Computed example of a mutant assay.
Amino acid sequence: MAFERRSSRRLMNQINVVPYIDVMLVLLVIFMVTAPLINPGQIELPQVGQALAPATAPVEVIVRKNGALAVRDRNEPGAPRDITRGELVEWLRQKQAHNPEQAVVIAADKDARYEEVVKVLDLLQSQHVKRVGLLAKPASL
């Protein structure tokens, strides 16, 4: 009778790190080969001698309760002056000729009809005014 001898296997309580070292070396070679091929981006730093253009205050178009229009140029002192829609178009052309990036804000009376504000927005859009905004009064706390 043949006795089977059981071979007792010892449990392995260590990690085999050889495959990890192989993978690490392959990655190292890949990085070493590709690193010289990468072209770093160029950064354009600002020059000391360059001056920034001062910001211009927006032109304000005021829509009154009765639908009448007034304009105020915040770059020039003075009270707002009444204007018709035809005069507004010509006045805006003159302002846009000097500074095409100047903003225009619409300040409407709270009791003014929404339709009048939309008409002014449409007029500004037809004149190709690029920067248009609505002026709002913050609520009192």
Rank of each mutant, 00 (worst) to 15 (best):
F3H: 10
E4Q: 06
R5G: 11
R5S: 12
S7A: 07
S8T: 12
R9D: 13
R10P: 00
R10D: 13
M12R: 11
N13S: 09
Q14E: 10
I15L: 07
Y20N: 10
I21W: 14
L28N: 11
V29W: 03
F31S: 14
F31D: 15
M32E: 14
T34H: 11
T34Q: 11
L37M: 00
I38P: 02
I38H: 09
I38Y: 11
N39L: 01
G41T: 13
G41I: 12
Q42M: 15
E44G: 02
L45D: 05
Q47V: 03
Q47D: 13
A53L: 14
P54R: 15
P54M: 13
P58G: 08
P58W: 04
P58K: 06
V59C: 07
E60L: 02
E60I: 06
V61I: 07
V63H: 03
V63K: 10
R64T: 13
K65H: 11
N66M: 11
G67H: 04
A68S: 04
A68T: 03
A70K: 04
V71M: 15
R72N: 07
R72A: 12
R72H: 09
R74F: 12
E76C: 03
P80T: 07
I83T: 03
T84I: 02
R85S: 03
E87D: 02
V89S: 02
W91R: 05
L92S: 08
Q96V: 09
A97D: 10
A97C: 05
A97Q: 08
N99F: 02
Q102V: 15
Q102I: 14
A103S: 09
A103M: 12
A103N: 07
A103V: 01
A103Y: 01
V104C: 14
V105Q: 01
I106L: 03
A107I: 14
K110F: 05
D111L: 09
A112E: 03
R113I: 12
E115A: 04
E116H: 07
E116V: 10
V118F: 05
V118P: 11
K119E: 13
V120W: 10
V120D: 06
L121H: 04
D122K: 03
L123I: 04
L124N: 10
Q125G: 01
Q127F: 00
Q127L: 10
H128N: 01
V129C: 15
V129G: 13
R131H: 14
R131D: 14
V132C: 03
V132Q: 06
G133C: 01
L134V: 07
L135R: 15
K137C: 00
K137A: 02
P138F: 02
P138D: 10
A139V: 05
L141I: 08
